[in-house]
Amino acid sequence: MAGHSKWKNIQRRKNAQDAKRGKIFMKHAKDIYVAAKQGGGDPEMNPSLRLAVEKAKSDNMPNDNIERAIKKATGSLDGKQYEELTYEGYGPGGTAVMVEVLTDNKNRTAAEIRHAFSKNGGNLGENGCVAFMFQRKGYLVIDNSNNELDEDTVMLEAIDAGAEEMEANDGVFEIYTTPEEFSTVKEAMENSGFTFSNAEITMHPQTLSTVSDEDGQKMIGLVTMLEDLEDVQEVHHNVDASEDILAEL
């Protein structure tokens, strides 16, 4: 019985991992679909598509899945039509939350997001209620946990490439760019030999909202529930909390 129980536990974990992988691939497929729909199916000529494909490959998404998403967007295959939407609201403790989605059924998506907010001490708001608290930025992260890289050298490379600013925090270099210069900075620094542990265009909070540990735990519940929704692509917030809370977020 013990061996049988162990096998069942392994199988259960594998099924959970497969389900999680499937959700990740679905999110990447939607990102690729929208990028190709807006800018064409050639990654060399479409920086947004190139970034979406790179992110998908970093999560080991099969090439067949990537090509299928591009073909759907360019009309080579029949498929669902997705719409890009952003929902805004207030999380626990009055924090600002923005949720980017890709959906083929906005009524379903709105109901699911509203439920997630209400269940975790937040409220879904009107368009524009918190958007002014964020600014779209290119965001590049270099891992320097082994302290091999010199901060001044990396900063000069980033600025020369066109970055706006760089911060050194806890063994990483965080580089910020305008959305328009993101691809240029990324490619220039990669050509100089730098590799990135994260590279994306994201919504950067202009001000942070400090919350208690209790509200921080509620915020973790809200973000987790939102990210588990199939239509949700990104969740942005302006939470400042204890290190343990931020690590989970």
Rank of each mutant, 00 (worst) to 15 (best):
E100Q: 12
Q81H: 12
T74Y: 02
E84D: 14
G91E: 07
T95Q: 04
A96H: 14
I66A: 00
A73S: 07
V99C: 07
I113N: 03
E88N: 09
R108K: 15
L85N: 12
S118T: 10
D104A: 15
N107K: 14
K106F: 13
Y87H: 01
G79H: 09
T103V: 11
R108W: 12
G75Q: 02
G121V: 06
G121D: 05
K72Y: 00
P62M: 08
L77S: 04
Q81I: 14
H115L: 10
Y82A: 03
E83T: 15
V97G: 01
R68H: 03
N63L: 13
T86I: 11
T109I: 06
K106D: 12
I70W: 03
T86C: 03
R114F: 07
E84A: 10
K106I: 15
Q81Y: 09
T103M: 06
M98R: 13
A96S: 15
D59K: 09
K80E: 10
L102E: 04
G75S: 05
Y82T: 09
S118P: 04
G79L: 10
N65H: 11
A116P: 03
E112P: 00
S118R: 15
L77N: 07
N120H: 12
M98Y: 04
Y82K: 05
A96R: 14
Y82L: 12
P62S: 05
G94Y: 06
A73C: 09
A111S: 10
N120W: 07
E100P: 00
R108L: 13
A111D: 03
G93W: 06
G79Y: 06
Y87Q: 01
